[in-house]
């Protein structure tokens, strides 16, 4: 029997990918959760009384996120008002099942669940979008819409912050993709542990230093209920290349890319346009009209029956003025 290197009594059942330590189950849970707690404390991610939306997709990251957030909130009396927030993209067979998982999570963790759908926010389901434009650029739509949908949903529910399950591997992938597409402003945003602190809802990434493999191990040993299918519309050439590369990279040297180790030129940063508001939907945008509205416009142009202005105004009225949600980080 291999002995746990931490407690010296338990039977080691895992070799931590992060440190190569042999550990028993309880010790693994403990260090896994404690590291995340430490990240939360060190980076002052929350304050007592915060209303926090847990971005819940039903996938492993967000399921583990819900588990760890509720656990730590109780263990350390964070005093957070937690709820699950899901986005229904309207992809038959994909979201239907994953939303079932999220609904079970809601019962398990006894925290409320709110689902916002693309259909109610934008007037389009992803299925309808794909039917319209084919599989070519659907991930652009999905990505842009999802980013806003979370914010809009969270604002509707008067959340102060959003937590997402982005882990170290996700961040590595995003770093790589942003370097490859020369997107420096997003490169800065994707590596910081909190984003959107100005006008948008702050987004927290407590898993920033957590390895994906450990999240999988945690979910596996805890027998967490999660849904594990890639988005059926997801595969795209560039991201595929990047993922394979990162996988091989990890085989050579475990978790090589750490998002934080980049420094962006100051002048470049100041050149990034100031975040204003979209004139159509009032959502935070660096351009007069936000990306979602531009995409919607291009979608709707082919379908004269749906008027973009109406949709925009409708959404605008629903969105709570963002200034109310300005949160001061301590």
């Amino acid at each position: 029997m291999k002995e746990c290197t931490r407690c010296k009594t338990g039977r080691a059942v895992v070799k931590r990918p992060k440190t190569a330590e042999m550990m028993c189950k309880p010790c693994f849970y403990h260090v896994f959760e404690e590291e995340i707690h430490q990240t939360i404390v060190d980076n002052k991610l929350f304050k007592a009384g915060d209303r926090v939306a847990i971005a819940a997709s039903g996938g492993k990251d967000s399921t583990v996120l819900a588990e760890v957030m509720t656990t730590l909130n109780q263990r350390y009396n964070y005093g957070l008002d937690l709820f699950l927030l899901s986005v229904d993209e309207g992809i038959t067979g994909y979201r239907d099942d994953s939303l079932e998982t999220v609904k079970r999570n809601q019962e398990q963790y006894k925290i409320p669940l709110k689902i916002v759908s693309y259909e109610e926010l934008y007037g389009w389901t992803m299925d309808a979008i794909v039917a319209k434009i084919g599989l070519k650029n659907n991930c652009t739509f999905c990505g842009v819409f999802r980013r806003q949908a979370l914010d809009r949903g969270a604002m509707l529910l008067k959340a102060d912050k959003i937590v997402t399950g982005h882990n170290a591997d996700d961040i590595a992938e995003t770093v790589l993709l942003n370097l490859l597409r020369g997107d420096i402003s997003r490169l800065t945003r994707c590596t910081s542990i909190t984003t959107g602190t100005e006008d948008a809802l702050p987004r927290m990434k407590p898993f920033k230093y957590t390895y994906e493999k450990e999240i999988v191990m945690y979910a596996y040993f805890k027998k967490l209920d999660y849904f594990s299918t890639e988005c059926i519309y997801s595969p795209n050439a560039y991201r595929g290349y990047a993922r394979n590369f990162l996988k091989d990279l990890e085989a050579i040297r475990p978790s090589s890319i750490i998002g934080e180790n980049l420094h962006i030129q100051q002048e470049t940063l100041s050149k990034i346009p100031e975040q204003g508001k979209c004139s159509r939907c009032n959502y935070i945008s660096s351009n007069p009209v936000c990306k979602a509205c531009i995409l919607l416009d291009s979608l709707n142009r082919g379908m004269p029956k749906i008027e973009i202005a109406d949709e925009g105004e409708k959404v605008e009225k629903e969105v709570v003025p963002t200034s109310v949600h300005k949160t001061i980080n301590f």
Binding site: C139, G143, D170, L177, Y238, R239
Partner: peptide, 12 residues
């Protein structure tokens, strides 16, 4: 979940 967006972003 991943932070949306992709390379062949032809929308701009």
């Amino acid at each position: 979940m991943s932070e949306g967006g992709k390379f062949e972003d032809n929308s701009c």
